[in-house]
Design a binder for these strands. Structure first.
Length: 459
RNA sequence: GUCCCUAUCGUCUAGCCGGCCCAGGACAACGGCCUUUCACGCCGUCAACGGGGGUUCGAAUCCCCCUGGGGACGCCA
């Protein structure tokens, strides 16, 4: 099957998770069938479109691992094309010039509303034979009767009576094309075969189909994926915290975790939860898409992220966490980070947390802050044990096994319980009551830094 | 208001053309095991077919109505 999909964001903001998920689905569908995935920037709204958002969206696409085929298409560079199509429609009688002002149209809508009907343009200029002129727009001549039906990839058969549709504007008074006009022209010219987009476009689809028919274009397959709701089941908004893909990146999420989470939100493959990207490409064929809106669950995302974090090799993880460590004001080579990372790899849910934990090991002994619970374990008796252990460690090789053996022999030799020396040791080393095993901590810190921290705790 | 979409545990979902489902998996929560702590891991518990009518020997699965949720009705995209 020949498949060409596209993702068409408008550069009026960063790429949000809803758009991100749509992009992933489109990319997956194209890759699954060995087709093409195209990217189009819908920047006809000159007021709100910004280059920086285009850049941000492209950066997020790359971060997610979604590569696109062919050149980027900018709608703002295709205005002539759209107008040529509008002219064609005018010539064939499928469109007409209209001189009604926005105010007049609004009044018509009010009349319709008052009659309990859907607000719409009443077709006043339909029968007139107006030509171009200032303030005039071009409208599509919607058929008088009939039903527009299509088979949605995810929602199944959908039918709408044309009576519900009014004569939509194709060309604005300023000569700019409207959204539906541009989309149909672009999707056709780009050879798009499958239009996968957000749920909110369902009502646009019948209108666009009318345009396909008027223009004599072959229709693509349409598919509408439901929206993503906030954890409270309400429309996702700023209230729900981070929503843009770029924010998740900044919070230390791994792209494979976000992709896995987003795909699984609205698509399933039996009971499977974890999917590698190549596995998704193999499995995703456009079926099994859920037709109901789904609530976003940050906790499950976090769980997936922690999962992927544990799968990465220390060396690779060191490189990923380095920028986050630097952001916290610490300097450490990637080699050094690679040595430390294993201590916290399975204790962190994201790169930000991991970096924060690593700074416990990187900072100066004097800057170490001791948590209350940890401080309480540093009793006079415990300090005496620490002093004795310092002596034990003096002539020892600072390796995990040797350190562990040394601590155990001290504990047993003095008839103690491990908990009498473990907690105070950890408190002295990192100022916390929980965390990596003490011998691993000692080995990672090294002789000099370990003894420095122990002596400081005793003092 | 009108039209369209939608409805299984708190959340994501499995459940394709009815019986194998007194509904399965995952996240979260809770309990336990492992363990020097934390975390990981493992085991277990709690928890759902929105309501009402049909069709049928039999419905979460099919049909209708109601209710709930969402979206759209722009010279925005």
């Amino acid at each position: 099957m020949h498949v060409v999909t596209r993702f068409a964001p408008s550069p009026t903001g960063h790429l949000h998770i809803g758009g991100g998920r749509t992009a992933i689905f489109c990319w997956l569908l194209a890759r699954h069938f060995g087709g093409e995935f195209r990217l189009r920037i819908e920047d006809t709204d000159t007021e709100r479109s910004r280059q920086e958002y285009t850049d941000s969206i492209l950066a997020s696409m790359r971060w997610l691992g979604l590569d696109w085929d062919g050149d980027l298409v900018y709608q703002s560079q295709r205005l002539d094309v759209y107008n040529a199509y509008v002219d064609k429609l005018l010539e064939s009688g499928h469109a007409y010039w209209c001189e009604c002002t926005p105010e007049e149209v609004e009044a018509m809508r009010e009349v319709a509303r008052a009659k309990g009907e859907k607000p719409r343009y009443n077709g006043r200029c339909r029968q007139r034979t107006l030509g171009p002129g200032p303030g005039r727009v071009v409208r599509l001549r919607t058929p008088d009767s009939g039903v527009v039906a299509f088979n949605d990839m995810v929602k199944g058969p959908i039918a709408v009576d044309v009576q519900e549709l009014d004569d939509m504007i194709l060309r604005r008074a300023d000569g700019m094309p409207t959204y539906n006009m541009a989309v149909v022209a672009d999707d056709h010219d780009m050879g798009v075969t499958h239009v996968l987009r957000g749920d909110d476009h369902v009502p646009n689809t019948p209108k666009q189909i009318l345009l396909y028919q008027a223009l004599g274009f072959e229709q693509p397959v349409f598919g509408h994926v439901p929206m993503i709701l906030g954890p409270d089941k309400q429309k996702l908004s700023k209230r729900h915290g981070a929503r843009a893909v770029i924010e998740y990146e900044q919070d230390g999420l791994l792209p494979q975790a976000l992709v896995n989470y987003l795909v699984r939100l609205g698509w399933s493959h039996g009971d499977q939860e974890i999917f590698a990207l190549d596995e998704l490409v193999r499995l995703f064929d456009g079926h099994n898409l859920n037709s109901a809106a789904a609530a976003f669950d940050p906790e499950k995302l976090e769980w997936l992220n922690a999962h992927y974090l544990r799968e990465i090799t220390p060396g690779r993880l060191a490189a990923l966490v380095a920028p986050f460590v630097a952001k916290l004001g610490f300097e450490a080579s990637e080699d050094r980070l690679a040595e430390l990372v294993p201590l916290y790899q399975e204790r962190a849910a994201n790169l930000k947390d991991l970096a924060k934990s690593l700074t416990l090991l990187l900072q100066d002994a004097d800057a170490l802050v001791c948590e209350d619970k940890a401080a309480r374990s540093l009793t006079p008796e415990a300090k005496a044990h620490l002093a004795a252990l310092c002596a034990e460690f003096e002539g020892l090789a600072f390796e995990p096994a040797a350190l562990e053996a040394s601590i155990h022999s001290y504990v047993e030799g003095n008839g103690l319980a491990f908990k009498q020396v473990g907690p105070p040791l950890r408190a002295a080393l990192i100022g916390q009551s929980g965390g990596p095993s003490v011998h691993a901590l000692l080995a990672a810190l090294g002789r000099e830094q370990s003894l420095l921290r122990l002596r400081r705790a005793i003092a």
